[in-house]
Nucleic acid binder design. Structure first.
Lengths: 282, 282
DNA sequence: ACCGTTTTTTGATCTGGGTCATTGCGGGAG
DNA sequence: CTCCCGCAATGACCCAGATCAAAAAACGGT
């Protein structure tokens, strides 16, 4: 049994937290005053805390400057706002700074098919390069700040900054790999395993960003989770109940505390080989 | 009902054909004498029939030459030969010229998990860029000829040939998209739909290479298919029987004739939106 | 042509998770 | 504070596809 975190949250605290900041952002962050937020908006790649997860990794200062100059940083998106719609012409990729995004397509009947949840440090829109149009829509699951990177300029830039090209390819490769893993999950993992895997992925992202991996808020609804994992909402709901009964999690609406990380890992990878080259798997 | 092809194959013909050439290579190809095969091995990108599917697409002659110079073309691999093993250091990507390849990982118990089938014109190994090691093994499903492209040189080259960089990114993007689709299939498609989709993908590849989309040989075993699609072998077998009964296919061991392409499509996409931007879906 | 091994097919049975229906709950509007 | 309304939880039942078992067909080697 692992220490779940610093404190137990009262219902009141949770209620406040779910309003604006989810996915752990509001929880472990230091208590900077509000005013700094505006400055943080102007943050440059050189000072961004996601440096090691994002495109700039490995770039020298001069190159970083150049990259920084093509990045557009608008005001944060609100929950439900779109980054782009299905069929929109492909102009930019987006790096997520804080918050989270879901991508999805929908069929004629209008029901959604969630194709991915995207967490801070990930790039969104890479699947649109081939056709020049976005094959899926992307919308913010919570208040989300982004860096928009015009793709034509990124392409241009990466042809004379070898490190940038390498990192771009690396991020795309990571996405391919992640999706391969996802395929494997969906193909032959049980409902239990799928949910465990998703929770571990979120925990890992928390960890990479120096937040507690044991405690976070889900920014997505059970419906979205079920949709993404190829399961019925009811199943997700039952699973959360079961995990809680078994002492693996404490779940209170959106707020999740992982009480027993080892057992969660065990559920997710009962016998898998650690093909875990790099830190792509959880 | 669509004309399934030029002729009905006798059992004898099939028996002969399954020996060497599968995936349609031997079927519709013109009757060149054996000797030419050796020359074909020396084929350059400029004359390759896969030009529009592969890296060279969009390059001018001069650039093509440069690319051509870094490509290594060895003798064809035999069925079961490895391109690389799990954990091998990442040196090259491989373009498939003829034949087919499966990629897979395996867990501690030693049972395989097929992560992909790769057909002519596709690149294999792109998932290894991030970690620098191959996260899965790749082996030939039949006699397969490849172009090996040393990745460091490809990276180098693509920084001063913009068209090459673009096409590399495009191919990686295509892979991301294909895998997203695969995820959707596995998440919420029935067994019927999954198999139909796989058959359509093969048919599309046949078509792109100017072979008949109605008739081909499966290079992979039912076990591999089941593994890939997240289904039991028995289910695959039953499905082939059912499709045959219903007059959708004629299946004779590895040899498949699609008798009713429309119905197959209908099974695969009962209500899907044509998010089919580009020709990524079937 | 024969024999052991592997792959495929088919049948019988079982079950994880889907579907349908109901109830509970929290948060926002008034 | 109360009334909705959409999300979440729980129960009852069912079915697609897994699993188990066994026969049949195809293959590789000698």
């Amino acid at each position: 049994m692992i220490d779940p975190g610093q404190k137990i949250w009262s219902n009141g605290a949770i209620a406040r937290a779910t309003g604006q900041h989810t996915m752990g952002v509001g929880f472990v962050a230091s208590g900077k005053p509000r005013v700094v937020d505006m400055k943080a908006l102007k943050v440059a790649c050189q000072t961004c805390s996601l440096y090691e997860l994002c495109l700039p990794l490995g770039l020298e200062n001069k190159d970083l400057d150049e990259l920084d100059r093509i990045v557009k940083r608008q005001r944060p998106l609100q929950r439900g706002n779109y980054l782009f719609h299905v069929g929109d012409p492909f102009k930019s990729v987006y790096a997520i700074r804080t918050g989270s995004v879901k991508t999805y397509t929908c069929n004629d009947e209008g029901d959604e098919q969630v194709t991915g949840f995207h967490l801070p440090g990930e790039l969104v829109g890479l699947d649109a390069i081939t056709s020049g149009r976005h094959p899926c829509a992307a919308r913010a699951l919570e208040t989300t700040s982004l860096c928009e990177i015009p793709f034509s300029r990124l392409e241009e830039l990466s042809s004379h900054i070898p490190g940038l090209q390498r990192q771009l390819l690396r991020l795309m490769s990571r996405e391919i790999l992640e999706e391969q893993n996802m395929m494997v999950w969906l193909g032959k993992k049980t409902a239990e395993q799928r949910l465990a895997l998703l929770l571990l992925r979120i925990a890992r992202n928390q960890h990479e960003r120096h937040f507690s991996p044991y405690e976070f808020n889900l920014s997505m609804s059970r419906t979205d989770i079920g949709n993404y994992l190829g399961l019925a909402v009811e199943t997700i709901s039952r699973l959360f109940s079961r995990f809680q009964q078994d002492g693996i999690l404490t779940v209170e609406r959106k707020h999740v505390v992982i009480q027993d990380m080892d057992r969660l890992r065990q559920i997710a990878h009962p016998d898998d080989c650690p093909l875990d080259t790099g830190k792509v798997l959880c």
